[in-house]
Write a protein that binds this DNA or RNA. Structure first.
Length: 590
RNA sequence: GCGCCCGUAGCUCAGCUGGAUAGAGCGCUUGCCUCCGGAGCAAGAGGUCGCAGGUUCGAAUCCUGCCGGGCGCACCA
């Protein structure tokens, strides 16, 4: 398929061929932008950067160049707007190219990078024995979207999960399980959350002792917790069996969450596997002189990086989070052959990752510079910060149930659409998809470095800028085809080329919007922030809604009817692609 | 004290590789279902882009300082 953008660059090069000192093609491409209003054209070239070479005022340059541009192929013409030279697309021809490109695969090919790499995206990293809450949902949404974007860009992607399945917090939970009044374990599917509550109780117990000033009690309980951890490390019963069983409950429950969200990992890492290799790696680099003893502990000095010493072994001989990340990084590089490594982790750990990457560099891993900490801000509640220790959280299960309930209610009370022939299975699947769309879109519609405020009332409101709106837009397209039938794409493309009256403002605005998809994916890869993609999809859904409202499709005369069907088709395909890249599966009806 | 992030409409946020009159959603006011799905479309009210300097033909966007908020700064993860 041919791109309008390419056609414009060709045209610019033709008219600038005699101009000495004119920018090269790359610079021209860089300068192209979108006019603020559809009636001002489809692609704008600012003439400021020719002012020096031509020694002429930009508006005059624009006017002169406009004279020289001739209608040709995808270009219908060019007009000057002040200092801008604006190109107009032949809407029908551009649309036909898109239909063809989507059919023969060249559209998807055009989304891909020229330099594919092996990329690992590590995300989710849930802790067993703790609740999975809406904060974790943000991590999964961002990580999975990035993973999908990198795939769409043609990279060889490995999606990695890293379970925090070991450590003193696990022991706290097991201690409370033994000493607290916890009742019987619930049935399958709720045991993980149950353990999460028990963990919170353990935290509350410790806080209570602390606040009561009971230092002896506090020391005793902490000692017992420490003892449980040591017992598991030593393989002693009953703690080892209890640990294995409860750990599995949690992993199983995480699995149901991922299935519901449609998230898949290519590889799993476990903190419990890293203790031993952690000791080895510290010994190795201690011997090499990269690490050194300090105040009874082992550190890596990072003065060259203007960072404090990175602690890799505590004075009691045990290892830390950072140590395990060193082991993991080495595996990622050496065993997986990763060329680029993304860590989707909350912004509060920025300092940790600066130390990690600097330490890796000191260890001789030059690829440390290809490691990126994808930092995202906290998810807050309207009343303030969440705290899993205090049990002040909105759990994933609560959110899922609330939103499923709200969507089900909306559909049951809606008389506009007849769903009497829907099977239970179709109901369930549709509600679930809308729920996932609302949750993921809610998490992805703000930039990584903006805090998300999770307001249940707001999130279950299905009107306005929500995931439901996006699915609704695509469902309307499906409705058109359900009623009008599916015509062969080749026929639609031919009709689009010949439809003289196609190209009204809503049509051109929508078409123009769709053309920017590849740029948006490139931007998300570059910034590792999926928010630009969600914003673009929302903009596309809006543009379609206006088109849908203003331009009747099925009742139009041929060939306009087919041209509009073609536009509906490419919108369905491209917005659908974008939604799936965010991890949102469209529905045909809702 | 040092480092990172954020301050844009009543609220929640886009826009930030400098460019054409600063945009959405929610809320408020008002139109539009005999017409492909009203979970929609259109219009209205609402903004000293935290403050002060600087760079530039041009600054919400870049630089400096200040004010306000969040997070982090070795034996937690």
């Amino acid at each position: 398929m041919q791109h309008f953008r390419t056609a414009v660059l060709d045209a610019l090069e033709r008219v600038l061929i005699d101009v000495e000192g004119a920018p090269d093609r790359a610079a021209l491409a860089q300068a192209l932008s979108k006019p603020p209003k559809p009636e001002m054209g489809d692609l704008a070239f600012p003439c400021f950067l020719l002012a020096k070479a031509l020694k002429t005022a930009p508006p005059k340059i624009a006017a002169e160049l406009a004279e020289k541009v001739e209608p040709r192929g995808l270009i219908a013409g060019a007009k000057p707007f002040g200092p801008y030279l604006n190109f107009f697309a032949d809407a029908g021809a551009v649309l036909a190219e898109l239909v063809v490109g989507l059919e023969d695969g060249s559209f998807e090919q055009s989304l891909r990078t020229e330099a594919p790499q092996r990329v690992m995206v590590e995300f989710s990293q849930p802790n067993t024995h703790k609740v999975f809450h809406v904060g974790h949902l943000r991590n999964v949404s961002v990580g999975d979207a990035l993973q999908r974007v990198f795939r769409a860009r043609g990279h060889d992607v490995i999606a990695a999960n890293y379970y925090g399945d070991f450590g003193i917090d696990v022991a706290k939970c097991l201690w409370q399980l033994e000493h607290g009044d916890v009742g019987e374990a619930p049935g399958e599917g709720q045991r993980g959350s149950w353990l999460g509550q028990i963990y919170a109780q353990a935290g509350a117990h410790l806080t209570a002792l602390e606040e009561a000033g009971d230092e002896a009690g506090l020391a005793r309980v902490k000692g017992e917790m420490r003892g449980i951890l040591d017992a598991i490390k030593a393989g002693e019963e009953p703690y080892t069996s209890r640990y294995r069983e409860t750990r599995q409950w949690c992993l199983d429950e995480f699995g149901t969450v991922y299935t519901w969200l449609d998230v898949n990992f290519d590889t799993d890492f476990f903190e419990s596997d890293l203790e031993e290799p952690g000791h080895a790696i510290v010994d190795e680099y201690l011997a090499k002189g990269v690490f050194e003893p300090s105040q009874g502990a082992i550190v890596c000095m990072l003065d060259d990086y203007k960072l404090g010493p990175a602690l890799v072994r505590k004075s009691d001989g045990t290892s830390l989070y950072l140590t395990w990340d060193l082991v993991l990084a080495r595996r990622k590089f050496d065993e997986f052959g990763v060329e680029r490594s993304l860590y989707v982790v909350g912004a509060e750990q920025t300092y940790h990752f600066r130390q990690l990457f600097a330490t890796l560099e000191r260890m001789g891993y030059e690829r440390a510079k290809d490691c990126t900490h994808v930092a995202y801000e906290l998810v807050m509640l309207p009343e303030g910060k969440m705290s899993s220790r205090k049990g002040k959280v909105v759990t994933f299960a609560e959110v899922r149930d609330d939103i499923v309930e709200a969507i089900g209610e909306r559909m049951r009370t809606d008389e506009r659409n007849d769903r009497s022939d829907w099977s239970d299975e179709k109901w369930r699947e549709t509600v679930d998809r809308i729920a996932v769309a609302c949750l993921r879109y809610g998490m992805l519609s703000v930039s990584n470095n903006t805090r998300v405020i999770f307001d249940a009332a707001e999130w279950t409101n299905l009107e306005g800028e929500t995931g439901a709106y996006l699915l609704y837009s695509l469902a309307r397209i499906s409705g058109i085809f359900r009623k009008g039938g599916r015509t062969a794409p080749a026929e639609l493309a031919a009709a689009a080329r010949g439809a003289a009256d196609f190209g009204g403002e809503p049509e051109r605005a929508l078409l123009n919007h769709l053309l920017a998809y590849a740029d948006v994916l490139e931007q998300v890869e570059r910034t590792t922030d999926p928010a630009a993609l969600s914003a673009w999809i929302y903009g596309g859904a809006r543009a379609f809604s206006r088109f849908y409202h203003d331009c009747p499709v099925l009742t139009a005369d041929e060939p306009l009817r087919s041209a509009r069907l073609a536009l509906s088709l490419v919108t369905e395909r491209i917005l659908g692609h974008g939604l799936r890249t965010l991890g949102i599966e469209p529905v045909e009806a809702m």
